[in-house]
């Protein structure tokens, strides 16, 4: 994660609104990062970044910006992969709040993300639904 990304201030769920666009976040998918990921998921490396690793880091980039209450859980996930990403690549993630629901005991968000490589080619897109504790 770049220093620029680390310096962003946290935004609370209350402050977020549908359509909010997160600042773009760039991250380097180097060999050490991918190796740690593969060890954690008991996967084998093939010189390319596992697509779920890219998704996980894109989610982290979003969660670095949002200050969610402890206990928030993942309800659903959609992902689409467009291109292989070699280990050592830097990718840029752009994300937005597609939908926010906040009722008396129901709080949830639908987050959309779009990940591109150094050439600007789309490598992955996704949509995550997160439910927050009441």
């Amino acid at each position: 994660m770049s220093e620029e990304n680390k310096e962003r201030a946290s935004i609370t769920f209350t402050e977020l609104s549908s359509g909010y666009e997160f600042p773009a976040a760039s991250y380097l998918l180097d060999a050490a990062l991918v190796s740690r990921y593969l060890e954690a998921v008991e996967g084998d490396g093939d010189g390319f970044v596992p697509p779920l690793a890219i998704a996980a880091y894109a989610m982290k980039a979003m969660m670095d910006v949002i200050s969610l209450p402890s206990g928030a859980i993942h309800a659903s996930q959609e992902l689409e992969f467009f291109k292989l990403v070699p280990v050592g690549s830097e990718v840029k993630c752009q994300s937005r709040v597609a939908r926010k629901i906040s009722r008396s005991r129901m709080k949830m968000m639908v987050l959309e993300m779009d990940v591109r490589d150094e050439n600007g080619d789309r490598v992955q897109s996704g949509k995550a639904t997160v439910i927050l504790p009441p």
Partner: peptide
């Protein structure tokens, strides 16, 4: 999906899952 479809999964797959 990777073990069944190889790199085609990582370069052209689409996943929709509910927890």
């Amino acid at each position: 999906m990777s073990q069944s479809f190889g790199r085609g999964w990582s370069s052209g797959g689409k996943l929709s899952m509910r927890f």
